[in-house]
């Protein structure tokens, strides 16, 4: 049941990315290009997702455990440090260079072709590199 729920959540996420047009890097770059012919679509995608998740978090506060067992995620330690800022800035740089972030890059795996696969391979390599250079105390 838990595995099926995981698959359904991933599938819904993928359909949402596809329907919203966010699997097209041109639309993402159109949003990020505020000095060009600005495309506001991404704001509606994030707005819609947050509109569902905000009440979902409120409900999570009142419940003791998820429906299929396990426990709700703990509130993360709120440490705003160079690691968070540097990582987010580096991610933004890569996102702006290509127009792909991890979700859409995976969702378009089937039709993205060699250009997408090259990006994905580099992204996975980057995750591996980060793991090797990560300081031990920052393990998460």
């Amino acid at each position: 049941m838990r595995i099926l729920a995981g698959f359904i959540a991933g599938g819904l996420f993928g359909i949402g990315l596809m329907l919203s047009g966010m699997t097209d890097p041109a639309k993402v770059l159109g949003f990020l290009d505020i000095a060009g012919d600005w495309d506001p679509t991404l704001a509606f995608v994030m707005g819609g997702a947050v509109a569902v998740m905000a009440p979902a978090w409120i409900v999570a506060k009142r419940r003791t455990a998820p429906v299929l067992g396990g426990s709700y995620p703990a509130w993360p330690k709120q440490r705003i440090d160079a690691r968070l800022l540097g990582g987010a800035a580096l991610f933004g740089l890569g996102w702006g260079l290509v127009g792909l972030c991890p979700g859409p890059a995976l969702a378009s795996f089937a039709w993205g072709g060699t250009a997408l696969w090259l990006f994905l391979a580099a992204m996975l390599a980057g995750m591996g590199i980060e793991r090797m250079i990560r300081p031990h105390e920052a393990a998460a």
């Binding site: 690691r83 968070l84 800022l85 540097g86 990582g87 987010a88 800035a89 580096l90 991610f91 933004g92 740089l93 890569g94 996102w95 260079l97 290509v98 792909l100 972030c101 991890p102 890059a105 250009a115 090259l118 990006f119 994905l120 391979a121 580099a122 992204m123 996975l124 390599a125 980057g126 995750m127 591996g128 590199i129 980060e130 793991r131 990560r134 998460a140």
Partner: peptide, 16 residues
């Protein structure tokens, strides 16, 4: 594509 992929991979893991 390679530079962007590397930056996204390293950055998202570093920035959690």
């Amino acid at each position: 594509l390679v530079a962007g992929g590397l930056a996204v991979g390293i950055g998202t893991r570093m920035g959690a």
